[in-house]
Amino acid sequence: MKNFISILGSNSDYSTNRLLLQFIQKHFKDQANIEIFEIKNLPAFNKPEDRKAPHEVQELADKIREADGVIISSPEYNHSVPAALKSTLEWLSYTNQALIDKPVMLTGASYGKLGSSRAQSHLRQMLDAPELKARIMPSSEFLIGYSLQAFDDNGNLTDQRKIEALERIFNDFVHFVDITNQLVNANESHQKQAPSYSWEAK
């Protein structure tokens, strides 16, 4: 049984990405305990001099550290990741760097046809930055387009093919978490090197 933390990439009161994470939580409950973390109460990142994480951010960081893996579900705003999710990642990279070497799986839902494809590609690039250095699962794109119509009244995905695709990716992720953690433990130098990184490093 794995312990995962999932981050909802939207701060909106209504979000189909929340529905998606809730579906994942329910659908895979025999394989993993999945907590859904809401970012809407996090303060906006403002690069404080003292580099101290606000307690909400520290709480998230602790949960990430304790989890075997992280699932991030992002909507797409302006071809990119919402500012609220960006801010969350900035806090993590600037303060405690909790995502370093953490296995991450991405999902996304959008109202339109493209299903957050551009946001996910930006998110991958961001998570790959040396300050974040997450271990993102490759070749695992999962997109839900027309997300307002994608769920039934019980919050279940209605498209059986989407459910099967999600199951394949989720199973991959369970293995990916094990493999990645082996790899990371084999080379702990990453951990030592990364915390010294900062945007101010001269």
Partner: peptide, 20 residues
């Protein structure tokens, strides 16, 4: 723009979200 995590800062992103 500076560069945070290979991307633009959330603060700028947020402004552009309001302005769209």
């Amino acid at each position: 723009t500076p560069e945070y995590n290979h991307s633009i800062p959330s603060a700028l992103q947020s402004v552009l979200e309001w302005l769209s």
